[in-house]
Write a protein that binds this DNA or RNA. Structure first.
Lengths: 236, 236
DNA sequence: ACCTGAACACCGTTCAAGT
DNA sequence: ACCTGAACACCGTTCAAGT
């Protein structure tokens, strides 16, 4: 219509922060595979060169996007009256919910943590979980092992559960989580009875489980293992 | 030299199996980012169309490559005299070592398991770990939770440790694992003393830990949590 | 049934040139 | 200091055509 053809909000000047924010939006709405510099330049109404002035490359952009979201998820302070155990559950749940809200996050968490453990993402998660591990009474020599185990569990599960949401936006469409689990469960039931006796026996649990409840059950399980290493404590 | 210019072994005809095997070789030697259809056609001395006749697309090729390697890693039967606990450790260690030998594997495991849990990779791992979980005496209602927790831990750690090897082939070169941990540890020590008190305190453990030993310590920790849910058993 | 290879529709990244 | 946008060197995938 008329002289103004650009439909993008243009008041805000380009900045690293705005680029990262737009990247997160694009990741959330279109999926990881659709985050391209082309799509970004279109949304921001600039050229690729402008983006490269603020951001070194795509890897750095993904790292920054991941960091923003994780910082947000971890920033929720546990309630003052919470036991360490409750605090760990709430930190873990916060990360779990972040991966639900941002289906691309889980894969990026794994990627970031693996490729740049010195980056900002790992310390954030490590710190949030580790403080509560310490409060649990774990001796200092066990801090690293216990916190690592917790973190790996959280990342692992979050990755698996989130991906299905991702698929809905990315691959076949209209498939709900229930249908997805239904299909997976049926596939497990169709496995060879001898070679896959255990997996077949557990197909029903795969079908009926509730993701969040299952996630917390696993956190409790790891917590039980950690608490077993606490000198004075009796098991809850 | 002379009339024979193609240096590739040509006796073997093209087949899905040969394509997958070549893909694994390429992944191992050149890294995940260098596995392209271009590189593949060159090594196999064909055109892309030939590959697409045997394999649907790149995703399927990666799935097949992952499946081969996992099948191999999991195929090692635990010793007849092993306790379930020892058997779990040896299955876990087998997967850990596979990700050490194939640095690209960890990321693919996460990917495969997330995007296609009905695929062949997940059941293989689930079955190998789950049989021992059952042998441990875990009640049936806890099989899924316990096995999932174990598997996620194994994948999580494997991912983190393997990536550094990957980086050596992929990003900056010449960096050894020790130097890598040294740098990460120093970065953790330089964090803000208030916001990152725990992470700073643990920087030394990051620097000094042995990957494999740490991995097994985590497995033991999760095992302790699982055993806490076994009715009759006393803790080891 | 199996393979060829040109072509298509994309990528991330660079860089001379502008303001 | 910040931005433009054409150009470069790639991708995965398709498909008419061959044998």
């Amino acid at each position: 219509m008329g002289a103004m053809t650009k439909r993008t909000a243009r008041a805000e000047p380009l900045s690293r922060e705005r680029i990262v924010r737009t990247a997160v939006e694009l990741l959330d709405t279109a999926g990881a595979r659709k985050l391209t510099f082309r799509a970004l330049t279109e949304r921001l109404a600039t050229g690729p060169g402008a983006i490269y002035w603020h951001v070194a490359n795509k890897d750095e952009l993904l790292a920054a996007a991941t960091d923003t979201v994780v910082a947000d998820a971890v920033s929720v302070e546990p309630g003052a009256g919470d036991s360490p155990r409750e605090a760990i559950r709430s930190v873990a749940l916060g990360l779990y919910e972040a991966t639900e809200a941002h289906p691309w996050l889980a894969a990026q968490l794994a990627e970031q943590f693996a490729r740049r453990p010195w980056g900002s993402v790992a310390p954030r998660v490590f710190e949030a979980l580790g403080r509560q591990v310490r409060a649990l009474g774990v001796p200092e020599s066990g801090w690293f092992t216990a916190t690592s185990a917790l973190m790996h569990y959280v990342f692992g599960v979050a990755g698996q559960n989130a991906a299905n949401t991702d698929m809905a936006a990315d691959l076949p469409e209209g498939e709900t989580r229930t249908e997805f689990l239904e299909a997976a469960s049926r596939a497990w039931e169709a496995l060879d009875p001898e070679a896959y006796a255990f997996t077949r026996a557990v197909a029903g649990q795969l079908r009926d489980h509730d993701d969040r409840q299952q996630f917390l059950a696993g956190v409790d399980l790891v917590l039980a293992g950690i608490e077993a290493s606490v000198p004075g404590a009796a098991s809850a």
